[in-house]
Design a protein around this nucleic acid. Structure first.
Lengths: 210, 210
DNA sequence: CGTACTTTTGAATCGCATCAAATCTGGTGG
DNA sequence: CCACCAGATTTGATGCGATTCAAAAGTACG
């Protein structure tokens, strides 16, 4: 179900989601709100690009299905844009799904492009956002080119956590997929790292100790 | 050695390198040309961002050295920008090197940023460039999360080649590193794929036959 | 309470990394 | 021109580590 965001009754978007603060007021007025359940499809490969999607709460993912049926996670967004790089494409080249109940802000793509032309602050923020995504993806590539599970885990904690401490906002199964590992492999490696005393695991809190 | 690009005696940059055509004339006048040998360092981790680097000919790479001494290739540019995403950073978080004699256009970062503010065409081209880089990196991540060498090779040919045909512009050793494989593994897999009749290898020309 | 999913452990297998070494290649200097 | 060298290419043998298949136990939720 879509709502006009003026119906919100939320605190200001800025409080809820920093990225939303970057969107000019004029743009927010034209945005709609979408409350999606878990495992809903936002768009599919080949769909025309109609909206810019901003995840307010919950989680959305870009996925692509390989021939053998395995699923690659191309992006995982919890608060922030999803499929930013499609803004200058006609259509999508992957699918977007939710993994849990998720609230999304839909900004019409044409309106969004116009705002980029007119609002210098917004434009800088957008460029900065794209650059940040590039750096994040480079880190991900670097991580995936490590071929030991423990190395990938450490790399993830170093680059996504703060000072060797990481709070995980996803199940280990999903994390395993993001790390390019099977879940069995991840579980076993986490266990071994604990036994070896190089990692401290307390629920979703992971601390490197080396 | 750096030259003012007016000393060029080149054909127009547009003919040499399409990406350069996106740079406004005013900006080109302030750019310098750098002729680097193979294995030169353009900048190191921590260096302040002074220039935007545009590779005119040859090859530049972003690399990061892991603790164990192995080297991860974060970007490989043959004609086009390198480290685009650093434009909004103070300093670099990886190293840039050349792998062969390379000619580079150095545009002062401040000048570049000013041009982005003032020239709408240029700005759109830049955003499009960043978006393209994002898509390319997503493809790279998807590829690295395949765990069979043959799958990565096929994926590379599909996404970097045209209609299942790819011309390789680097040694197989470098390609192996980009694919996240050892060179031995790559050689053996290429051989096996040929023997199995799913791939045709003729020097730098690779054709999938399945 | 039952169902779906996650977490966990086990055993067997396969593929890649690793180490080693030979051959081939292009470029340099004598 | 040839000897030489550095790097790329190629083949071989071995071991490790991740995948795979299987299954049990734990957990959240209606």
């Amino acid at each position: 179900m879509k709502h006009n965001i003026d119906e919100l009754g939320w605190p200001s978007l800025i409080d809820v989601q920093p990225a939303a603060g970057l969107i000019p007021i004029s743009l927010r007025k034209q945005a709609e709100r979408l409350d999606a359940l878990a495992h809903e499809t936002l768009f599919r490969t080949g769909d025309p690009v109609r909206y810019v999607y901003l995840v307010i709460s919950g989680e959305a993912r870009l996925v692509r299905l390989a021939r053998n049926g395995s699923e690659a996670i191309l992006q995982r967004s919890r608060g922030g844009f999803i499929a930013e790089a499609s803004l200058d494409s006609r259509s999508y080249h992957c699918d977007a799904i939710t993994t849990e109940p998720t609230t999304i802000l839909l900004v019409p793509a044409a309106t969004f492009r116009a705002a980029l032309e007119e609002d210098p602050m917004f434009r800088r923020a957008w460029q900065s956002q794209l650059a940040k995504e590039v750096r994040k993806l480079r880190a991900q590539c670097e991580r995936l080119s490590l071929n030991k599970a423990a190395d990938r885990i450490n790399h993830y904690i170093e680059s996504e956590g703060v000072n060797g401490v990481l709070t995980l906002y996803q199940s280990r199964m999903s994390w395993a997929a993001e790390l390019g590992l099977t879940h069995e492999s991840l579980y076993r490696t986490l266990r071994r790292m604990q036994d070896d005393g190089v990692l401290d695991v307390d629920g979703a809190r992971l601390v490197t100790k080396s």
